[in-house]
C-alpha cells in the first residue's frame, strides 16, 4: 500500500465520522426548523391564539394554556412525590441495605426504568384508576370536597392519577443518580462523623446529603425534563379534558397536557389550523424541555469540574 492511498483512506475515514456527526447535528436543527415551518399557519393566523384559554376544534379555537399548565402541573406534582421516594430509597440503599438487598434494589430500579410508557398507561388505566377513585378520591371528595382543589366528582382518570403514574416513571432517574452520588461521599468525612458517635442517619443528614446536594438537585431537574415530555402513560390516564383548570381547579378533575393533546388529536386532525396549532404546542414543549435539560447539564458540568479540581 503506497503512502498516497493510506493518506486518502485516513482522511476519507475522518470525513466519514465527521460527516456522520454533522448529519446528527442537522437532524437536531431540522427538528426546530420543521416544527417552526409547520406551525407557521397558526402563528400567521394569530400569534397569540396558542396562549388562549379555550381549545374548541369545532369553532376553530386553539388556545393551549390549559394543556401547557397541565404539563407543568402534572410534572411538578410528580417530581414533588418522586423526590421523597427516591431520596428515601437512595439513602436506604447506600447506608442501610445489606449487599443482597442492594443487588435486588438495583434490579428493581433498572426494571422500572425499562418498562415502556404505554405499559404504565394500561396499568394506570385499568388497574390503578378504579382503585384510586374508590379508595382515594371518593373519601377525600366526601370529606374535604368543599376545598376547590379536592372537589368532585371523582372520575378516576384525572390530573392526580397522571401525576401518580408519572411519579413511578421518574423515580428511577432520581434514584440511580442519587445512589451513585451518595456512594461517593468521602470516607474520611464519614469516619470522622462516626468516631464522634454519630448515628448513621446523622451521617447522612449532616455529611452525605449536603455533600451531594447539587448533584441531587440536577437529577431532580433531569427527572422534571423527562416528566414534561412523557406521553403515553399520561395520555391514557389524564382523561384529556379541557375542564381543568378554568372550569374546575380540582386535582381530581380530568385535565390535558401538551403531549396528551398531540397524541390524542394529531392523527385525526384535518384542518390546517388544527394541525399547525398542535405542532406549535410541540414546539413549545421542545423549547421547555431543552431549557430544563440544559440547566441540569450546566449543574452537572459544574460538579464534575469541581470534582476534577478538588
Amino acid at each position: 500500500m503506497n503512502k498516497k492511498s493510506i493518506f486518502f483512506k485516513d482522511s476519507a475515514f475522518k470525513y466519514l465520522v465527521g460527516g456522520s456527526s454533522l448529519i446528527v447535528v442537522a437532524f437536531f436543527v431540522m427538528i426546530f426548523v420543521m416544527l417552526a415551518v409547520r406551525s407557521y399557519p397558526s402563528m400567521a393566523n394569530d400569534p397569540l391564539m396558542i396562549f388562549g384559554s379555550t381549545w374548541d376544534v369545532n369553532s376553530g379555537l386553539y388556545g393551549g394554556i390549559p394543556a401547557i399548565l397541565g404539563t407543568l402541573a402534572s410534572s411538578a406534582i410528580a417530581v414533588a412525590l418522586a423526590v421523597p421516594i427516591s431520596l428515601g430509597m437512595s439513602v436506604f440503599f447506600t447506608e442501610y441495605a445489606p449487599r443482597r438487598v442492594r443487588a435486588a434494589l438495583s434490579i428493581v430500579i433498572d426494571m422500572l426504568a425499562t418498562i415502556p410508557s404505554v405499559i404504565f398507561g394500561i396499568w394506570g388505566l385499568w388497574i390503578v384508576a378504579p382503585l384510586v377513585k374508590t379508595y382515594v378520591q371518593d373519601p377525600i371528595v366526601g370529606s374535604i370536597g368543599f376545598i376547590p382543589l379536592f372537589s368532585g366528582p371523582a372520575y378516576g382518570l384525572s390530573l392526580f392519577l397522571a401525576s401518580l403514574v408519572l411519579t413511578f416513571m421518574i423515580v428511577p432517574i432520581i434514584s440511580s443518580l442519587t445512589i451513585s452520588l451518595l456512594s461517593t461521599t468521602p470516607v474520611e468525612l464519614r469516619e470522622a462523623m462516626i468516631s464522634l458517635g454519630a448515628t448513621r442517619w446523622e451521617v447522612v443528614r449532616h455529611v452525605a446529603l449536603p455533600f451531594s446536594k447539587l448533584g441531587i438537585f440536577a437529577s431532580i431537574i433531569l427527572a422534571l425534563g423527562r416528566a414534561l415530555g412523557e406521553t403515553m402513560a399520561v395520555t391514557m390516564v389524564i382523561g384529556n379534558s379541557f375542564i381543568w383548570p378554568f372550569s374546575s381547579i380540582s386535582l381530581f378533575s380530568p385535565a390535558s397536557t401538551i403531549t396528551s393533546k398531540i397524541a390524542s388529536e394529531l392523527y385525526e386532525a384535518v384542518d390546517v389550523l388544527h394541525v399547525s396549532s398542535l405542532v406549535e404546542l410541540g414546539l413549545i414543549l421542545l423549547v421547555i424541555t431543552l431549557l430544563v435539560n440544559s440547566s441540569a447539564r450546566l449543574v452537572i458540568t459544574r460538579i464534575s469540574r469541581r470534582n476534577a479540581s478538588g
Binding site: 437536531f28 427538528i31 421542545l286 424541555t289
Partner: peptide, 10 residues
Amino acid sequence: GVPSLVIGLF
C-alpha cells in the same frame, strides 16, 4: 433529552 413525541412530530 428531546421527548420522543417531539421526534415523532418531526
